[in-house]
């Protein structure tokens, strides 16, 4: 058999197929992402708070406690379980679709690719939302809360300190400023991919007849 006579599914096509799936089933994507957003947001909040506190005390490094990191890790493990669960649901909901694309020529590898690329995007989007919101909440918490608690000249003073901290934090250390959200996003993509391997594998191995017989 010649090379011509072999099914193709370029990665670019797999990407656009996965993106369409996410876009047009955004509700389901949000459910899958909910746990990721919460977990990463919590982590990002802790890291940012730790960093701000360290800057305030003129220390380098971070003021996060070890137990807080452990809490974040546990939160993220729970979010991994959440992803496995909703990816399995999404595979089940799409049995017919999987059977159909197998009839149209998709090989197991192509189905695996579609689901893993979807997981990648869910991790990326969920991670970004989580990281930015956690960072934002931490910043508001650290800067605005003291402001609201103070009155009169004390408030002005707090405002000056906040502004100085903000400059120091964001301008003098842009890498550190960026690194926490980036760590959050990378971790999120990694977890989304790991948690989707088993569901994606199940989808890929489905026989077309089994998949088509399934009534949603």
């Amino acid at each position: 058999m010649s090379r011509e006579e072999s099914v193709k599914f370029p990665v670019s096509e797999a990407f656009s197929f996965s993106l369409e799936s996410i876009k047009r089933r955004f509700g389901r994507a949000l459910v899958t992402m909910a746990s990721i957003i919460l977990g990463i947001s919590f982590l990002s909040f802790l890291l940012t708070t730790g960093r701000i506190m360290a800057v305030m005390r003129q220390q380098s490094g971070t003021a996060v406690q070890a137990y807080q990191i452990w809490m974040a890790i546990i939160a993220i493990l729970i979010c991994a379980v959440g992803i496995v669960n909703s990816m399995l649901m999404s595979v089940t909901e799409r049995y017919k679709e999987i059977g159909t694309i197998k009839c149209l020529g998709a090989r197991n590898r192509h189905v695996l690719e579609i689901f893993l690329i979807e997981a990648f995007f869910l991790g990326l989007i969920g991670g970004a939302i989580g990281a930015v919101s956690g960072w934002g909440i931490a910043a508001l918490w650290q800067y605005l809360l003291p402001l609201m608690m103070q009155q009169g000249s004390a408030q002005t003073e707090a405002l000056v300190i906040a502004a100085r901290l903000w400059l120091e934090f964001n301008v003098n250390e842009p890498l550190i400023f960026l690194s926490n959200p980036l760590i959050g996003i990378a971790l999120s993509v990694f977890i989304a991919l790991i948690s989707s391997i088993v569901p994606a594998y199940i989808a890929a191995k489905l026989s077309p007849t089994e998949a088509l017989r399934y009534e949603a």
Partner: peptide
Amino acid sequence: DAYELAWLRAKKIGYVFQTFNLIPVL
């Protein structure tokens, strides 16, 4: 083999089902 079977399904056979089985998001 798996490659040739995929080619057979893609090129040589067209399938029509009672439940239409279109991809809903496309």
